[in-house]
């Protein structure tokens, strides 16, 4: 019974903007596309610290955290979110990234535990498809 509920539940996704940049065009488009595709989406708004994002992710019981950043601070902020999740005892929550992120950094960030990174020009459909296939309900 419990198992059944879990598989039928809508995915809950956190779209978050860590750091100080205000470029939210992409994050908002993705949030809306995911909502239109039938997922539950929580959008944090801008200027979030890793602490704020981790606390929202835990309180909202989300199934994935999707981080968007376009200021160049991804090498610090993405791993920091993952580290703070771990410190809070959350080790099975997928973290996905997007933004202006050079390829060398993509490799390093994936090693640090980021599941996937989406760059400029990625279609909404590709992201919706990825989430639908790779993210599973955690509860």
């Amino acid at each position: 019974m419990k198992r059944d509920l879990k598989s039928k539940r809508k995915l809950r996704l956190l779209v978050a903007k860590p750091g100080l940049d205000g470029h939210d065009r992409g994050a908002k488009i993705i949030a809306r596309a995911l909502r239109d595709a039938g997922f539950e989406v929580i959008y944090t708004g801008l200027h979030q610290t890793p602490e704020m994002i981790v606390s929202t992710a835990i309180q909202e019981d989300v199934d994935a955290v999707m981080l968007s950043i376009l200021s160049g601070a991804h090498n610090f902020l993405f791993p920091e979110v993952i580290k703070q999740l771990k410190d809070a005892g959350v080790t099975d929550l997928p973290v996905i990234g997007g933004g202006i992120i050079p390829e060398d950094d993509v490799r390093e960030l994936k090693k640090a535990g980021v599941l996937e990174i989406f760059g400029p020009g990625t279609s909404m459909q590709d992201i919706v498809k990825f989430v639908g296939e790779k993210i599973k309900p955690r509860y």
Binding site: G19, L20, T49, S71, G72, A73, L77
Partner: peptide, 11 residues
């Protein structure tokens, strides 16, 4: 400030 971590001199 902790809020500036990772952003200093980047953009």
């Amino acid at each position: 400030s902790p809020r500036a971590r990772g952003e200093v001199g980047k953009c």
